[in-house]
Design a protein around this nucleic acid. Structure first.
Lengths: 337, 337
DNA sequence: CGGCCTGGTGTTATCGCTAACATCACCGGC
DNA sequence: GCCGGTGATGTTAGCGATAACACCAGGCCG
């Protein structure tokens, strides 16, 4: 009946190594003034006991945790989900644990409550994935004093923010179509209150303006393939439509399907470009030319911004933008003559 | 130049309420032996100071954290992502924070490392989402002594496990097709090393056996729409195929598309059923009849199992199964005569 | 009416760590 | 040869909570 002895503590390591617990602490924190030989003895003792520092004790005395709180919507949309996943990975590599507070809807109260829960946890910093305007508004309520970074949020707001350069990506996509010879490019847009969607509209329009092309009416949709399909059914009936830039890949999928049903060949009669580069995009028929946001880069920038705030309390450049890249596949061709 | 004073501690509350800090602690922990009047005074003081207990201090003395670690693959597949999201919500409601350790691939080393990171954090318990055999194997390495629950894992292993009853769902789906009058049902299966896929195959086969229907050859695929499309192209060419049960909705989508391209009408010539009930399924053409796993229920069972282990050290019934429900839409009809 | 239980409260020790200061040996400079 | 500096280590005092025990006032019992 062996009693489960408690986890080894610093003093146990100290005793085994024949030093004081403070020296063990110094070794753990890479303090310079420790003799090499001592350091090795301590490290050996740590390994022998399978010692792991008690974070609660450390947090208690330093007043800081190694926890980052993330507030994200309870959705499975590709963009936000990928972002979250990338951030968790980046934070993990930097030695931070990530605590995710899910929220059903991105409104003021829910976000405020999630932020409160994180503050209860005494997280070192908070990341809010706030891709639409209601979420961005909610941030006004967040008390200052907690390092906070917004991702995908409102570009017009003053809080530290990291975003993909939607406009640049959309510009490039549209430009690709123009350069292929299309007179103009139609756009199937995402929900108007999403910043990502707005940025993409802006880039699309800028590209058309840059060559003085006519700007066709905007086709509004949500993010779903279903709404893309409906938009596509309309566009397919219009012979003058030869190029469509969709605000995301799912919309593009719907458009592809509508075109195919109506017998309009992609890319030979109509070219289509998407945004996101979802994993399936390469298997669409035809494989979809699209814009790939670098979620890993966004995650790293976000973490960097947050860590700066945590250590300095301030950030020099509280706005970071990550450029997406165009992925050329087979859904773009010159227009039929 | 006002100095930022530190957060209020229990003693501050005690002083304001005119009691000892221990009484404050009693109020916080709902200890019975506190006079109602005292309780109210303390609660008022707590509110006035916006006091929040320091979890690190509590964890230090109790030896327990309110943190649950989750190990999940860094993927955006609908099933695992939904599960994770549901679990985060359930745990949040129970007052636990969830720390997610993402893993690129579900192999032994990665999972072991993620589990180690969580143990470093001194999580109260660990949940591993282990949907395929390599992940399940890795669990053999996890040291005992940490409360651990596997989700979607290997049904043949002894560890506490929560799963959706894949076989039952598949049985029901297949039975629906048989009852509609189809002589047999074809199956497009997910990856063979995924337990979900295996369970669905099993249920499909059982349903066919139950009416002594002929078991057609299994069509293997991965989880993607692309592979469903390829499978569908094959099936569409075979006039004897009138009913197809797909291992998930994306596969079904691919099959639908292949059927439509080949002019085989769904559901009048071919019936199709999926699994997962992804949000878009209702917008497929035609709206897809599918099987909906109750992710929220899985999350709750998982949490329950974990909490039992945390408090008792043991669990009476370390295996929980959640029955999925059939969602009838418009992709099933009697076979053509 | 004294002893004992019990409900409400306070006092003290303790968790495992880091910060701050104390100590001590050794060094070089005047 | 004494003194201040410096590098390596030890000692002590908290951080903010809970646990364990001490205490005191009443009520009930015999």
């Amino acid at each position: 009946m062996e009693k489960t002895s408690r986890d080894p503590a610093m003093t146990d390591v100290a005793r085994l190594a024949g030093v004081s617990h403070q020296t063990v602490s110094r070794v753990l924190n890479n303090h310079p003034n420790v003799r090499e030989q001592t350091r090795l003895r301590v490290q050996a003792a740590i390994k022998e006991l399978d010692y792991r520092p008690n974070r609660a004790a450390r947090a208690l005395v330093t007043g800081k945790t190694q926890l980052i709180g993330v507030v994200a919507q309870n959705s499975t949309l590709y963009g936000p989900a990928s972002l979250l996943s990338a951030f968790e990975e980046a934070a993990g590599e930097a030695g931070f644990a990530v605590s995710v507070g899910r929220v059903k809807v991105l409104d003021r109260d829910s976000i405020a409550a999630a932020v409160e829960r994180h503050r209860d946890q005494r997280v070192a910093g908070i990341v809010v994935i706030a891709p639409n305007s209601s979420a961005a508004d909610a941030l006004a309520d967040v008390p200052a004093g907690v390092p906070l970074v917004t991702v995908d949020g409102d570009p017009d707001r003053a809080t530290p923010l990291v975003t993909v350069d939607q406009a640049a990506g959309a510009f490039e996509a549209t430009k690709l179509l123009i350069d292929a010879g299309h007179e103009t490019v139609w756009h199937v847009a995402g929900p108007a209150d999403w910043f990502d969607a707005a940025g993409r509209v802006q880039g699309w329009r800028a590209a058309l303006d840059s060559v003085s092309a006519e700007v066709p009416p905007l086709v509004s949709a949500d993010w779903s393939a279903a709404s893309g399909y409906r938009a596509g059914q309309m566009l397919a009936r219009m012979p003058e439509v030869t190029a469509v830039f969709c605000s995301n890949d799912h919309l593009a999928l719907g458009v592809l399907r509508a075109m195919s049903e109506r017998g309009r060949k992609v890319p030979h009669e109509v070219s289509v470009v998407g945004f996101d580069d979802v994993p399936e995009a390469a298997y669409f028929i035809p494989p979809l030319t699209t814009v790939r946001p670098d979620f890993a880069a966004v995650a790293h920038e976000t973490l960097g911004l947050l860590l700066e705030q945590i250590s300095d309390g301030e950030t020099a450049r509280p706005r970071r933008t990550v450029a997406p890249t165009l992925v050329r596949r087979e859904s773009v061709a010159p227009p039929p003559r």
